[in-house]
Nucleic acid binder design. Structure first.
Lengths: 145, 145
DNA sequence: TTGCTTGCAAAGGGTTTGCATAGGA
DNA sequence: TCCTATGCAAACCCTTTGCAAGCAA
């Protein structure tokens, strides 16, 4: 990244980026603020929002919107994500043979296409287990009834 | 769609769905409420939100999140969308040779994949023209300065 | 010294929710 | 009649913003 793209290289901005890049959990702004506060106890949520917005505008990080709260990814490289419909958590998706999936030729009714995003949605491991436990419980109560 | 999936087939619900299906503009909840009020002047925004949420849960319509306000599409069939980064408007995308782009095999770290969404972003015709007008204006002022 | 950035807190704005009433089955 | 859905308005919650003070360059 080019440090000249912003005016001041503040400690807050550095720590926010460093901590985000350590994570693979695609945290929300609030969660990242909590983590950054271990190093900078006085940082405010507003500052975290301002910097995450700036960094994502610069293309240094990715902002993942949709499905509730925004989440952030310290890896700016183009890659797909999957979001859990139950708890909202986000994980990276490794597409097999991605060379088979170039940006398709498309008709976009006068739009100038700048980018694209491929998002999956489903149920994460933990939520699927919860659902199965619930199902088994309901089946059992039904039999006993 | 199966009317039994809900409990009451109210006039509000019918009109919301009818009006949404007439549109290709992917309206926001507020915009659709405005349109529905031509036929049901007393309908409340809360009712519109409740029904749009219900219908999208049932898979009768699509809810398009990300990039600000949610927008809704009366066409529930799987298809790609493009959103204008400047004004937020949404249009359908016609992917050429979609058979070349089946759901890819992927590793999703324990997720159960339920669906996917392919979203493009860019600038719509109108915003692009505005931008060009602005650019020409700035160039001209620069020359004159 | 300059003026961008921060912390704080309040405002904003889309969406959800509680409650009494209306109305579909 | 029964119980879901509505209208209204307040509450919610994530995010943005105004302002005085702080601090990088």
């Amino acid at each position: 990244m080019n440090p000249k793209l912003w005016q001041r290289n503040t400690q807050q901005r550095q720590v926010i980026l460093e901590e985000l890049r350590k994570l693979t959990s695609h945290p929300t702004a609030a969660k990242l603020c909590e983590i950054v506060r271990r190093r900078l106890p006085n940082i405010s949520l507003g500052t975290v929002y301002r910097n995450l917005e700036l960094l994502s505008q610069l293309g240094v990080i990715q902002k993942l919107e949709g499905g509730g709260e925004a989440r952030f990814d310290g890896n700016a490289a183009q890659h797909a994500h999957i979001r859990c419909l139950a708890c909202g958590c986000v994980a990276d998706v490794l597409v097999n043979r991605p060379e088979k999936y170039p940006l398709p030729k498309c008709e976009c009714g006068g739009f100038e296409v700048i980018g694209h995003r491929w998002e999956f949605f489903g149920l994460c491991n933990r939520c699927r287990q919860k659902r199965n436990i619930r199902k088994r419980y309901l089946e059992r109560s039904h039999k006993n009834a």
